[in-house]
Structure formats: structure tokens, C-alpha cells
Design a protein around this nucleic acid. Structure first.
Length: 376
RNA sequence: GGGGGGGUUCCAGAGCGGUCAAAUGGGGCAGACUGUAAAUCUGUUGGCUAAGCCUUCGGAGGUUCGAAUCCUUCCCCCCCCA
């Protein structure tokens, strides 16, 4: 995998570039839709590919390991073939599940014992095991196994957890380097910066991660409930340390505003469930602001869902119709909303890239945030 | 014709003398959601000049300190047997 930096914005740390993988080029900054269980929920591939057209999507190690399981994933020939997705894929390591399934896991220095949320069965994840699993899943970019700390998190625990993540990172790197890809194309391992909301820890972690000298670096443990100012502060100081010649991935972020602000801090890659999950719950992100399509005020609004939207559903359907689908519990509602939100996110980040290349990113970002953050 | 059951807040449906503006579900309205245990979850749902007051449990009248709950009567539904 290769990263090339194309341009920098003059008035911020924003940058534009591209990543070359064996499954194609990823233009950065990039938004990566989340497809946890080898599916971006509520949208089929034709619409995902033709309307949203993301450069890369995500899958999840923990979820795919439990179901359908490694035998199926291996027999399928890896995640791309399994789900009929020919472009790049990134798998998260299950580190987030260490956080989100905290009640169902037991953590030791060696690794984590999970209790399956599906049937209660127990499974052990170690850094080595997670590398093996991700070799089998076969994503182009795979993530180191980390602990995503909750917020708030006291300094003592944050430091201890960060050191554990670092120890695991060393084991991930060495095991990754001792194993080979299974399906004839390259995989890259991204390490993850932790350190909670403590600047000192974040700096230590950013240096540690940089020293691993992998092909890209990630920032984890943010957007877990901390104030946004803290999130930006941590992101900024970490970006200042992470090498410039490698992509920076801010995991799990975020709102459209969060993404534009983080691009200005030097982040290149984003993923978030927000456009998909919130779509299924009736929340639309548009260039004019945020819409809760279930609200009564749209009952008689026959204007298009999003007059400026790039997906065909945006002009094809009215707000009144989409509201009706949600109120009636019709599954087409979440599908339309998902296609819309993902198209908006991908469009927004591509616009950001254009403006970085035009060297007017910062001004564009500020005016854009003013518009997209409103509540309609 | 004979016998029986019932009318409760938007709907269905509990309650059967005070702790009832009235359980529960649905519907309605609003909110949350950030490396997906989420097509999920939460709040709210008679009115008001709002720690209080007012009007509601088919209609009217009555008993009682007090009635959605008891009595009288009227209206209306449903079921079974002929």
C-alpha cells in the first residue's frame, strides 16, 4: 500500500492525497461506511456502488468471527468475495467491542475473553489471534488489537490501558510480520493511538505508534462521550506527532461537523455508524441542515428529500413520502434514508478534498458547518 | 320470544366506594444515537393563569363525608338459544 500526499490547505492542517491498494485507489480525505457484518445495513450493493460509491468500506473482526465464522470466511475466499465487494475493505480489530461489550468480557495482559452477544459462548482474543483472524477475513487494511477506553477514565487506568495497548501492538506487529496474506493481495496493519483525554499519554502513544513505522496510523478512544473540544484537542496534538507521509485515521468519527473540523486538524480517514444508524432512526443529514423525518412538520411537505442531494432518491421522493414510510414502519424508509445519508457523507468529504486541492478549505469548512449543523 | 354480557381518557382494554386524571398495550408527539449487541432506545400523551385548581369513565337523577366504582331510569352495542 502506498500513500501520496497531493496538497495541503494553506490555512489549516488539512491535506489531500491518495492511497493505493491492491483493490483500488482511496482518495483522502475519505469517509468509510461501516459494514460491520459484511453488509452496510439497509442498502444493497448496486446502490452502494452506484449512488454512494465509497472508495472503501469497513467490516468487523469480532462480528464476522462469531458469524458467519472463520470457516465460511475462508472458504468464501475472504471478505471481498464473500460480500461481492471489489473495492478496498478495512476491518476493525474488535478493540471497540472490548469497550462496547464491556459487560461481556474479561481482560488480562494476554488478551480478552469475550462472551458472545449471540449465544453466550466464550471466545479468547489475543493480539496474535486477532491478526490471524484478520488474515483470514482478508481486508486490505487491518487494525491492531487495542483497548478502547471509556470516558471518563481516570489517569491511572488510562495509562495502564495505553501500556497494555502498546504491548499488544508490539505483538500484533510481530505476528503480522510473521504471517502472510492468504488471497494474493497485500494487507496493511494500522496501529492505534490511545491515551484517553490526557495530553501526555496521547503524546506518548502517538510517538509509540509512529515508531512502529506501519503504512498508516489510527487514533482511537475518542468520540466515546467526551466533550468535542477535548476530542479536537487530542486529535490535534496526536496529528502533530504522527508522520506526515502516512495516512491518519480517526476511528469512529463522527458528525459531519466533527469530520470537517478533524480534516482541518490533519485527519485523512473516517468511519462512523452515524449516517447509517441514524438513517434507520429517521435522521437525515443534508447540506441545509439536519432533518428528523418522523416529525409532523414534514407531513405535507412534497418537496424533494434533499434538493441538492447527489443520490437519485433525493430528487425522486418527497419528504412527505419518506415521513409516511417511517411512520408506517415500512422498510423502504430506512433504505432511502441510508442511501441519502451515505451519499451525503461521501459527497461532503469529497467536496472537502476538492477545496483542499483548491487551497480554500478552511473558509469553505466554516461556511459549510454553519449550514449543515442547523436543525430543520 | 327466552337467557346472558357490556358501554372507561385517540383506540383496545384494566379498574369495580377513597391511595384514580385512571394500569397495560397500541397509536400520537418529541428526543437520543459517533472504530454497530441498534429497522434500536428514552421521554411524553385531558385542560389550565400548573408544588395548585378545573373538567373527564354512555345520558339524566339519586345514595354517601366521598362515586369510574352502589341504586333508579333512559339510550346504545354484543353474544347464545328459539
Amino acid at each position: 500500500m502506498k500513500y501520496e500526499l497531493l496538497a495541503r490547505d494553506g490555512k489549516s492542517k488539512a491535506r489531500a492525497g491518495f492511497l493505493t491498494t491492491d483493490h483500488g485507489i482511496i482518495e483522502t480525505p475519505v469517509f468509510m461506511p461501516v459494514g460491520t457484518a459484511a453488509t452496510v445495513k439497509a442498502i444493497h450493493h448496486k446502490d452502494l456502488a452506484e449512488q454512494v460509491n465509497p472508495d472503501i468500506i469497513l467490516g468487523n473482526t469480532y462480528h464476522l468471527f462469531l458469524r458467519p465464522g472463520l470457516e465460511v470466511m475462508e472458504a468464501a475466499g475472504g471478505i471481498h468475495r464473500f460480500m461481492s465487494w471489489e473495492k478496498p475493505v478495512l476491518t476493525d480489530s474488535g478493540g471497540y467491542q472490548v469497550y462496547s461489550l464491556a459487560e461481556k468480557r474479561k481482560l488480562t495482559d494476554d488478551g480478552v475473553t469475550f462472551q458472545s452477544h449471540i449465544d453466550g459462548s466464550r471466545h479468547f482474543f489475543s493480539p496474535e489471534r486477532v491478526m490471524d483472524i484478520q488474515r483470514i477475513l482478508g481486508a486490505d487494511i487491518i487494525m491492531a488489537f487495542d483497548e478502547c477506553t471509556p470516558y471518563p477514565c481516570d489517569h491511572g487506568y488510562a495509562e495502564k490501558s495505553m501500556k497494555l495497548t502498546h504491548a499488544w501492538l508490539n505483538r500484533c506487529c510481530s505476528h503480522f510480520d510473521q504471517t502472510a496474506p492468504r488471497y494474493g493481495y497485500q494487507q496493511s496493519l494500522f496501529p492505534i493511538v490511545q491515551g484517553s483525554t490526557y495530553a501526555g499519554l496521547r503524546r506518548d502513544s502517538a510517538r509509540f505508534v509512529s515508531d512502529c513505522d506501519r503504512e498508516g496510523n489510527a487514533i482511537g478512544g475518542l468520540s466515546v462521550g467526551e466533550p468535542v473540544e477535548l476530542m479536537y484537542e487530542m486529535t490535534e496534538l496526536v496529528c502533530a506527532i504522527l508522520p506526515e507521509d502516512k495516512p491518519r485515521y480517526l476511528m469512529g468519527v463522527g458528525t459531519p461537523e466533527n469530520i470537517l473540523e478533524s480534516i482541518a486538524l490533519g485527519v485523512d480517514m473516517f468511519d462512523c455508524v452515524m449516517p447509517t444508524r441514524n438513517a434507520r432512526n429517521g435522521m437525515l443529514f443534508t447540506g441545509e441542515g439536519i432533518i428528523n423525518i418522523r416529525n409532523k412538520k414534514w407531513q405535507h411537505d412534497f418537496s424533494p428529500i434533499d434538493p441538492e442531494g447527489t443520490a437519485f432518491v433525493d430528487q425522486m421522493y418527497s419528504r412527505a413520502y419518506l415521513r409516511h414510510l417511517f411512520v408506517a414502519g415500512e422498510m423502504l424508509g430506512p433504505m432511502i434514508a441510508t442511501q441519502h445519508n451515505l451519499s451525503f457523507y461521501v459527497w461532503l468529504v469529497r467536496e472537502a478534498r476538492k477545496h483542499i486541492l483548491q487551497n480554500d478549505y478552511n473558509a469553505w469548512k466554516d461556511s459549510m458547518i454553519g449550514k449543515i449543523s442547523r436543525r430543520l
